[in-house]
Design a protein around this nucleic acid. Structure first.
Lengths: 186, 186
DNA sequence: CAGACTTGCTAGCGGTGCTAGGATCGGGGC
DNA sequence: GCCCCGATCCTAGCACCGCTAGCAAGTCTG
């Protein structure tokens, strides 16, 4: 049945289109501007079509987040490969990603999105990103758990991102905060 | 004009009632359950009355957040006074507050609420809380900015709170993460 | 007691996420 | 070639949201 195959292919293309448009809309105007009506209008289908691809709006955001994990991991990997101080470069890449793509970062780490995270079923890109952060904390002294230290580093970076974006911390001086954070690592 | 005074007093009481009920509702069912309709119903007035006290729903959340700042500061102060290891006790109190009152914590640090934060006009209780965190990082070695170090500590704690609550970090082991974070301080 | 002002209500606007039910279109069996 | 059946997609609508206009009471002032 080549007709069936073709339809499945077209369906996959349309699903990708929905995710892409949702992401563009979110990055351009923030997630509060991403309504199912506007999204449907931009993909040139009616609202119910969205629900034939995704269970609900959260699932669309989750799909966008998965894309984000891959890009964040790639960005950190690139930074590690090209910089002379890989540790600082990776951490800087993390903050730069969050600053450049706030909506994407929110979908990944702030919003309620229901995705498996701290389990083996988590998206592979998420594990890849976490592994990049492992590089930052190395070498780990004896007696310190590398995974735990990576989590604490991640928390520090994430805290800097969210407190700054929410206006809780003044926007300047972020480089100094990052330098101080990195200098604390054993 | 004692009538006028009485009315102003009653108005203030009603305003406090709105804040209290909003907070109770949020703590019981989360902020997404705090709608102006339900809030109005619980304070036994109509919706528009809310808007004669507050500019919008965000302002109500901000008022709740201000209460939270005071309580968090008080909780950390109490922990410092009674514990034998004040540094750890203060940090533990921070995490305990966030775990015990997630909705309150969200209003204070996660939601969009428009409050002055990193300025002298910020609520006094916020400064008090920040000063408690200063105690945690002391004594600060020469050459390190105490304020900056406190911000980094705060970011670490806040990151732990939000990543854990969002399911990004496994819920257990929080004590070990905290111990590790504190051990990193100079 | 009359008028002005305050207070709080009902009703409604434009939006949200999501879904029921019907029209339309394509492929397969007779 | 025709008909039917299932997939596909849309219109219309539900229940809810934050917020506000405009009116009906109640309260104070002259």
């Amino acid at each position: 049945m080549s007709g069936q195959e073709r339809r499945e292919r077209e369906r996959a293309i349309r699903e990708q289109l929905i995710v892409t448009v949702a992401r563009e809309l979110a990055e351009a105007e923030g997630w509060e501007a991403v309504t199912t009506r506007r999204l449907a209008e931009r993909v040139e289908y009616s609202q119910p079509v969205l629900y034939s691809h995704f269970k609900n709006k959260d699932a669309i955001m989750a799909a966008v987040a998965v894309e984000g994990f891959a890009e964040l991991a790639a960005q950190m990997r690139r930074a590690r490969a090209t910089a002379e101080d890989p540790r600082q470069a990776i951490a800087e890449a993390y903050l730069a990603f969050a600053a450049a793509r706030p909506a994407l970062y929110d979908a990944m780490f702030s919003q309620a999105v229901s995705l498996p995270f701290a389990t083996p079923e988590a998206p592979a890109a998420l594990h890849a990103g976490f592994d990049e952060l492992r590089v930052v904390v190395r070498p780990v002294p004896a007696g310190v758990d590398e995974g735990l230290l990576t989590e604490v580093l991640w928390a520090g970076l994430h805290g800097l991102v969210t407190l700054t974006r929410g206006g809780r911390l003044p926007a300047g001086e972020q480089e100094r905060r990052l330098a101080l954070l990195l200098s604390l690592l054993p």
